[in-house]
Simulated assay, not measured.
Amino acid sequence: MLRASRKQELKERIFTQAVKLFKEKGFDNVTVEEITQACGIAKGTFYNYFPKKEAVLLHLAESQLKSVHESIQRNENMPDLKQQLLLLFSDLFRRYAEQPDMIRLVVSEMMRADMFIHAEIRILERFRQALAALLEDAKNKGQLTTQAASEDIAAVLTGVYFNSLMIWLSAGSNTIRIEMLFQRHFDIVWEDIRSRGVVKQ
């Protein structure tokens, strides 16, 4: 367990140092060798964690997806579905609040490069599937009664999340709090879900 924790810490350190270099010099101008020198590691160690430089950018999306699964597992016995969903998204937004400049850089680089489109779509689909499974479980527990398919509700919530992210990104350094923005949009969607069935509070 300790070894896995250390490996995760090193992966995060490589990611953080790489993104700092991307910010200073531009993504295209940074080499793997420069990243490894900044981290004080061998090239082979870098490739143990990332198959190529571009994979560093995907680490953010992968770690956010991991956060989703951890939140679902941690709060699986919570009787209030709305609170469970809000805690899940709050976990995602925490990193945005802690490292806003880093997040903006990584997301903008990923959007700029065509090579990430298929990988992003796969991660987005896994994100949507995780939400759909959570909603389906809530239906099975009687926490949610609605005619709407869990997959459709998950798709709408995913859209609200990414819409909030895009607004936050376009605001630049302006102090838009992404979590508050998401909450406003989420509340509108939640009212519609409640109107179509029963949500246990």
Rank of each mutant, 00 (worst) to 15 (best):
M110K: 06
E120G: 08
R74G: 03
M110I: 14
G44N: 07
I123M: 08
Q129M: 08
L124V: 09
V56P: 00
I121C: 08
K23I: 15
A61W: 11
E33M: 07
E76G: 05
K20R: 14
T31C: 04
E24D: 10
K141C: 06
V19Y: 09
L144A: 00
I14N: 05
L88A: 00
E34R: 05
D28M: 10
A42S: 12
S63L: 05
V107Y: 14
E62M: 12
F116E: 03
Y49P: 01
F27S: 06
T146L: 06
S90Q: 15
I117R: 13
L135V: 10
K25S: 06
A133F: 10
T36M: 09
Q37P: 02
I35N: 02
D137N: 14
M102F: 01
E70H: 14
T45S: 06
I35L: 07
D28T: 07
I117E: 12
C39M: 03
I41Y: 00
N48F: 07
M78W: 15
R13P: 00
K43Y: 08
F22R: 03
R126I: 05
T36A: 11
I35G: 00
H118V: 11
G142A: 03
T145Y: 10
V106K: 03
A138Y: 04
I123F: 02
L131F: 07
T16R: 12
I123Y: 01
I35P: 00
M115W: 08
D137S: 13
A42T: 14
K43L: 02
L57W: 05
S90F: 12
Q129F: 02
R122I: 13
D91H: 03
V30W: 02
M102N: 02
S71R: 05
N75Y: 15
A133C: 10
R94P: 05
T146E: 07
F127K: 12
F93L: 02
